[in-house]
Design a protein around this nucleic acid. Structure first.
Lengths: 146, 146
DNA sequence: TATTGTTATACTCTATAACTATA
DNA sequence: TATAGTTATAGAGTATAACAATA
C-alpha cells in the first residue's frame, strides 16, 4: 500500500530537513572514522579561517550556546586540532588557533564535504546544483547572531 | 571583528540546515501554542491523508524509529486529533484515523506551514521560490524507507 | 555593572535491546 | 520464524541557571 505524502513533500521545510539529514548521514560515514562530526567540523573550519577567534564569536557565528561549545573545543584541543592562547587584549578571552594538524584536517574535511554535496545532489545538473546552492544561501542569509 | 565564514556558507549542507532551523523556529512560534511540533505535524498530516495508516508505514515514510513514534501518536490521541482502530485484516496492526478535530488542525497547520515558508523565503522572487522548492524536492527525492 | 568562559543540569530528540501478541 | 507495536533505557543535541575572572 502506497502512502500519500504529496502535500508533506511539497513543503520546503520538510525537504530542507531531508537534504540536511542526507548530508549529515554521508558526512558521518566518511568523517566519522576521523572522529569529526559536522558541528565540530564547522567549529574547526571557522578557527582555521579566523586565527584567534574567541568562543563568543564562534557561538554567535554558528548559533551555538556557549556551554555546548566547551566540549567541542575541548575535544578538538585534545586531538591537537586546535590550540588555545591568551587573548592579546582581553584577559577574559581565549583565542583559538589551528596548528598544522588542524589545518590539514580542515582541508581534508572540506574536500569530503564537497564530495558529499556532489553525491547528495547527484540527481541535479551542474546548472541546477549552482542554482540550488545560490538560492539556499540567499534564504539562509547572513547570520544575524544572537 | 568580522568573522570569515565564506567557505562554510558556501556548503549546501550547512545552508540546508540553517533553512530548516529557520522554518523550525517560526513554525514553533506559531503552532507551539497549539501544542503541535513539526514532527507531530508530519504524523498528523500523513494520518489525515491516509486513513487507516499503520505505525509501521508512518515510520517508514517519515524515517522515524517505532519507539519514538509511540509517544507522538499517544499525544495526538490524547488530544483527540487521532484515533486508533483495529486493523481489518491484521490483528497485530492498528489503523490510525483523523477525526474532524484532527482534520481541522491539519488544515490549519498546513496553512501555517505555507505561511512560514513564504516568510522564510521572503528574500526570493516567486520564480526563485518555485525553483528552490523543485530542486530541494528533487534532491530530497522519494523516501527509500528503511 | 557587563562580558568571557565554565560547570552543572535538564529537556528534547534519536537510537538500541528486549518483550508481547499476532501472522 | 517474521512482523507490529510497545517498554525501558541510553546516547546525542540543545537549553537554562549560576558561578569565577576580567573588563
Amino acid at each position: 500500500m502506497k502512502v500519500n505524502a504529496r502535500e508533506l513533500e511539497s513543503l520546503m521545510g520538510y525537504n530542507a530537513r531531508r537534504v540536511w539529514l542526507a548530508v549529515l548521514g554521508r558526512f558521518g560515514e566518511r568523517m566519522g572514522v576521523r572522529g569529526l562530526k559536522p558541528a565540530e567540523f564547522s567549529v574547526l573550519l571557522l578557527v582555521s579561517h579566523n586565527p584567534g577567534i574567541t568562543s563568543r564569536q564562534l557561538c554567535a557565528s554558528l548559533d551555538i550556546l556557549p556551554p555546548n561549545l566547551v566540549r567541542m573545543v575541548h575535544m578538538l584541543q585534545e586531538r591537537g586540532l586546535v590550540e588555545r592562547r591568551a587573548h592579546p587584549r582581553d584577559g577574559r578571552a581565549v583565542g583559538l588557533h589551528a596548528p598544522p594538524a588542524g589545518l590539514a584536517l580542515t582541508r581534508e574535511a572540506v574536500r569530503v564535504a564537497r564530495q558529499v554535496e556532489a553525491d547528495v545532489t547527484g540527481s541535479l545538473t551542474q546548472a541546477e546544483r549552482a542554482t540550488l546552492s545560490r538560492l539556499l544561501r540567499k534564504v539562509a542569509g547572513p547570520n544575524p547572531g544572537r
